[in-house]
């Protein structure tokens, strides 16, 4: 008798990623059901107000900033890490991109200068995170906590705690536009989701991310440069912070050291209820997208119904615990 054949087969795509299959569908189904319930509650309590196209766009716009950051967070967590500094990096990127210096350069060379500096600052912060973690062997929690403190501090120093207003009309016009009725930042969010899904599920980079998060020693023995890969993951998360900074800059027409406060918690929550394992090795971009949509729709429904953010936070907490309990159930059923 061959022991190989004894066990019930499990297709990898079902549990690992987003490509469908029974387990993946079950888990994503849970998320879809949660979202549908929220929408039904929204329609029941607020009717046309909730279901209108304008409101849907409003939800998506709100989801965009935290959504983009959550995609970056999905990669870091799948790779076995955590990034607490995303909100602070976003703040620093937004401040750096809106200093009078950057803005006057933008007047000369076009608003792309502001975009590039936001992306560069975000990526650079992520790189520092990655290097400290991978080569300095500092625990991710501590390294990114340090980045959280210092990036926001630096942002406060640069901005002198003032809100920096964007004077460049080209920037606000471009990112404030709504081609075919869809805001540019929502389109950006969609691109990041599609790009993130592709990167995680269809590239060697993604494959190695699962390996590094699932079993770093095995990944190392397979010839993967685990340290370098870790650096890439944090740099990627930093880049998404830069993108989110540009989006928030366009939404607020400002850069400020207070932008993105507590964003890290929302992002981690969205990633975890989406089904990415906090211990690494399993991750799903589609799940994260649902996680973000569930939270933003929840916020929207509560706003439409005049409910306080305090009760909303309680509901959020309940959802997180229920989602993680469900996730454990599914994981246990698998083994």
């Amino acid at each position: 008798m061959s022991t190989v054949q004894q066990e019930e087969s499990t297709e990898v795509t079902k549990t690992r990623g987003d490509s469908g299959g029974s387990l993946g569908v079950v888990r994503n189904l849970g998320l879809v059901i949660a979202l549908v319930i929220l929408c039904v509650v929204g329609v029941m309590t607020s009717g046309d107000q909730f279901a209108s196209k304008d409101n849907v766009i409003t939800i998506l716009r709100l989801a965009s900033v935290v959504g983009v950051v959550s995609i970056g967070m999905t990669f870091v967590i799948t790779g076995g890490g955590i990034d607490l500094s995303v909100g602070a990096i976003l703040a620093l990127s937004s401040v750096w991109a809106t200093t009078t210096g950057t803005q006057s350069m933008a007047d000369d060379y076009g608003w792309i200068v502001m975009v590039l500096s936001a992306l560069l600052v975000g990526t650079a912060c992520g790189l520092i995170n990655g290097i400290v973690i991978a080569y300095g062997k500092v625990v991710p929690f501590i390294a990114t906590l340090a980045m959280l403190a210092s990036a926001r501090g630096l942002a406060e120093i640069i901005a002198d705690r003032k809100t920096q207003i964007i004077r460049n009309q080209g920037f606000t016009d471009f990112f404030g536009a709504e081609p075919l009725g869809i805001p540019v930042i929502v389109i950006m969010f969609a691109l990041v989701v599609v790009g993130g899904w592709f990167l995680l599920n269809r590239t060697t980079f993604g494959r190695r991310t699962f390996a590094v998060g699932g079993n770093p020693e095995a990944a190392r023995l397979a010839g993967i440069k685990v340290q370098r890969h870790t650096v890439y993951l944090y740099a990627l998360a930093g880049l998404t912070c830069g993108i989110a900074a540009v989006m928030l800059m366009s939404r607020t027409t400002t850069g400020s050291s207070t932008h993105g406060t507590l964003l890290e918690l929302d992002a981690i929550a969205a990633v975890v209820i989406g089904g990415t394992l906090l211990s690494g090795g399993r991750g799903t971009v589609v799940g994260t997208l649902f996680g973000v949509l569930i939270f933003t729709t929840l916020t929207n429904v509560f706003t439409l119904n005049n409910l306080s953010t305090s009760s909303q936070n309680v509901a959020k907490g309940v959802i997180i615990v229920v989602a993680v309990l469900l996730q454990q159930r599914i994981a246990n059923r698998k083994t």
């Binding site: 795509t13 690992r16 699962f210 095995a218 990944a219 010839g223 090795g281």
Partner: peptide
Amino acid sequence: LIDGLSVADNIFLG
């Protein structure tokens, strides 16, 4: 081996 990856992914890992 990485438990979360497929057989083929593991064979060609790296």
